[in-house]
Write a protein that binds this DNA or RNA. Structure first.
Lengths: 149, 149
DNA sequence: ACAAATCCTATTGACATAGTAGGAATACCG
DNA sequence: CGGTATTCCTACTATGTCAATAGGATTTGT
């Protein structure tokens, strides 16, 4: 399944902000862009969407930057996905009136619609906090590994 | 999730062929096109792919048409999807060497890669026979419903 | 020979994606 | 108040994919 870059980078950016604002400071887009190897201008567009979706607060000016708008465990992944891409979780089938025998309708029910529900159930309860937790475990493991070399 | 028309129509076409060749006769593309309200020329392209993927056998000439290449319960849906669209079940993430801190990598593990596995597990054991069964139950219900009107 | 079917490939228009670019607006600091 | 650093907003563009159209070549049965 192809994930577009806005969705992927948006989630990466949110995770980056969460991880780097634990001291209470704002995170600049230029820092995120450097750390995550993203074009800053493109990242700004993505962050704009994330702010309009109320996932982050932005502060302009010399000590400006971004912070999460609320604790990470109250930022639902499905909301982020919907804000950044209106197709990824949507069931896009539309019935065709001119089709009498119902094969298309039943394939949709049995396959696409069920697959869609299934995907939603995977995402449903996940929050940004889960990604942060995963990242911390991941980087702790890396550190251990480096230590033993 | 957006399903492209080749995938959707391909599966519909296969189901149509299965349902309409139970007497042993081949099914013409023009009949499928009429029944399912698809452009015949476009359908031919899709059927070409299905034949090259060994899901159907084709017969040219005046009594030609298409038949399943083997019983429907041995035609796996995941194989069809892979033949018609090489992204739909693929995990398209590619690691970025220039990225030191591992946020992208861990988001991929926790989210995209797991979501992909989850989707696969839904499709994994389904065959064309399941769709045919669903369709028959569906159309039986429709018939009952019409009867009571 | 003819008709009817599949087979194959080229082309096109529309749309989405992945950026690039330029500057406006705002906030802080001296 | 002026300068600088930041976000904010919009326009543009290049590329690729998708969905479909089109035209004819090939094969088969009668």
């Amino acid at each position: 399944m192809k994930i577009n870059t806005k969705v992927e980078l948006g989630i990466v950016a949110l995770t980056d902000i969460a991880v780097h604002s634990e001291n209470g400071e704002s995170v600049r887009s230029s820092d995120i862009a450097d750390r995550q190897n993203i074009s800053q201008k493109y990242l700004e567009q993505i962050l704009l969407g994330l702010r309009q979706g109320k996932f982050v607060k932005a502060q302009k000016g010399i000590h400006g930057g971004y912070q999460l708008s609320r604790p990470a465990d109250r930022i639902m992944l499905c909301d982020i996905l919907n804000a950044l891409d209106n197709n990824i979780l949507a069931n896009t089938y539309e019935p065709d009136d001119k089709q009498p025998d119902g094969i298309r309708a039943s394939v949709n029910n049995c396959l696409w619609s069920n697959l869609n529900s299934y995907m939603r159930s995977f995402i449903e309860d996940m929050t940004l906090a889960d990604l942060i937790k995963e990242y911390k475990e991941f980087s702790a493991k890396e550190k251990d590994y480096m230590y033993y070399i």
